[in-house]
């Protein structure tokens, strides 16, 4: 084979690669759009009246996740199933965002941490690599860390809205999350960088709880919420 033939063949391979990336980019853009819509919807909970409508907002968000699932289905068809990590960078960001949104919905509904399997199910993908398009563990953990900062914000806003019991529950949740993350041996990568931000969220929530405690507002809350501290 001559040199020019070889390079022509390589160019063909690279061109195909580029076409695949183009296709993926299109679907990812649509996914980003849906993710933004869900986020806008859920942002409503930070405003005073939003606290009464949490279940309704969660239900609406869950409907949007139906769109996410169909978009994920189409994403899966854009590239060979065994080359997930070859194109991983393209959907990494949006997948982390979607994990956060799913985790936020689940938290608002049940005040528990969504499991990896449950997120995968909400997004219409697999939890294990062996079974196809899956949720990478680092992406899952990144999404969970975004949830932590969102909850720190929620704690502040729920006090403003007069809900004094929620910060206590959030505090317990975040503390457990923090000790969970402390089990992990993280490398010096982007996940580690985001984990380093978790302590500020913990601190923020502790401050809110402190403010409530010295004013005796937490006692008032426990009457309604049924004993946290």
């Amino acid at each position: 084979m001559s040199v020019s033939e070889m390079f022509a063949a390589l160019q063909g391979a690279l061109g195909q690669d580029q076409d695949i990336r183009e296709e993926i980019r299109k679907v990812v853009q649509a996914l980003e759009q849906t993710a933004r819509e869900i986020l806008t919807l859920l942002q409503g909970v930070h405003q005073g009246p939003g606290f009464q409508h949490i279940p309704k907002k969660c239900q609406k968000a869950r409907e949007h996740f139906g769109t996410v699932r169909t978009q994920m289905e189409s994403l899966k068809t854009k590239f060979p199933a065994d080359q997930y990590y070859r194109f991983h960078e393209h959907w990494r960001f949006v997948l982390q965002r979607l994990v956060f949104l799913a985790a936020f919905v689940v938290y608002l509904e049940s005040e528990t941490l969504v499991t990896r399997e449950a997120v995968a199910e909400i997004l219409g993908i697999e939890a294990d690599r062996e079974r196809g398009f899956h949720l990478d563990i680092e992406d899952y953990l990144s999404g969970i860390l975004t949830l932590a900062s969102e909850l720190a914000r929620l704690a502040v806003n729920s006090v403003t809205a007069g809900d004094y019991s929620r910060p206590l529950r959030i505090s317990a949740f975040i503390n457990e999350l923090d000790s969970g993350f402390r089990l992990l041996n993280l490398k010096n990568d982007s996940l580690r960088k985001r984990y380093d931000g978790l302590k500020y969220d913990v601190k923020k929530i502790e401050e809110v709880v402190y403010d409530l405690s010295i004013r005796g507002l937490n006692k008032e809350a426990t009457v309604g919420a049924g004993g946290e501290k």
Binding site: I137, L177, G180, N185
Partner: peptide, 16 residues
């Protein structure tokens, strides 16, 4: 939660 994070620890360590 802690149980699942223990399994994450294992998975991440294996990968690293």
């Amino acid at each position: 939660l802690m149980t699942s994070f223990k399994s994450f620890q294992l998975e991440l360590d294996t990968r690293h």
